[in-house]
Amino acid sequence: MIMILAIALIMTIVGLILGLLLKGIDRKIAAYFQSRIGPPLLQPVYDIIKLMYKQTIIPVTAVRWLFSSAPVIALASSALLLLYITIPYIFYIFEINTTLQGDLIVVLYCILIPSIAMVTGAFSSGSPYAAIGAQREMVILMSIELPIAVVIISVAWHAADSMADPFAISSLFEYPLWHNAGAFGVLGGILLFFAMVLVLPAEMSRVPFDQAEAETELAEGISVEYSGKLLAFILLTDAFKALALSMLVVILFFPYTLSQLFGISFQMYGHTLTPFVEIVFLLFKIIVIYSFGITFIRVVMARLKISQVARFFLFAITAISIIGLILIMLDPNMRII
């Protein structure tokens, strides 16, 4: 128990730094795509430090307790989401036997909480811009809910024939989605991956799905009234979410470790270094997912309208993910019955 708490504490701090660094990498890569040099890699960290010094202003029209508690709830729940996804994987890498398995259904709920907290804070701020932003955020949340659920269910479906609990995160590592998949399974997996990658920017509020914070329309929308420490919390929430969501894509689709892929292990002075190398490999996978799923998409597209987004997710992406699910169900190698 104490060990888990200690690991959680360390991982929160490490996750904070890595999340901010991930945002820095994102900005740097986006700048390179746009033929710029871009800010220093640690710019998000400097932003947080600066905001911590700044005065926090709470508007008179706001519901004070709700307005100031919403970012804290968002931060706590996003940290929880990160830990909940990551700890089983860390245990798996370090080959620690534990009863802690993690549950995909809980992940599905945890993804929602930071956004819901932000929406609550925005509604309580009393600003019309924030209210419009919050409405849009709710619309986006509702439209992406079904694709995420379908993706998670399909991944669980294929693991159902194994002995392990299909909805446990840890069983994903033993039976990755591509595990003895046939042609249908591979095709379905690709479709599901495509759907999940397009859901990422919507969940993270990035162009083309950043209607809730649209700068030129709503002047940062849901976070328009936040300043100082509360804004810093929002930025930290964003960093945690960035790391957690790319981590989720990694464990859903690419949970392979180096030793699984190539059967190699690293030794030095008689101690095994394999887990640490695996963590570096994991970070590499996260950066690749993030820079393709979020950075690349956000530089090549314009912001869509909220009606277009709702249509896009409710029809196109939902259809794609359901087709993926059906394909996986049709794959004879993955049949349970």
């Binding site: 890569i29 390179y32 795509f33 746009q34 033929s35 710029r36 040099i37 690349f296 530089v299 090549v300």
Partner: peptide
């Protein structure tokens, strides 16, 4: 067109003038 353009730009010389 933009997709090809950004991929081209990531490898080309950057336009920023540093202070």
């Amino acid at each position: 067109g933009m997709v090809y353009k950004v991929i081209e730009q990531i490898f080309s010389k950057k336009s920023t003038n540093c202070f």
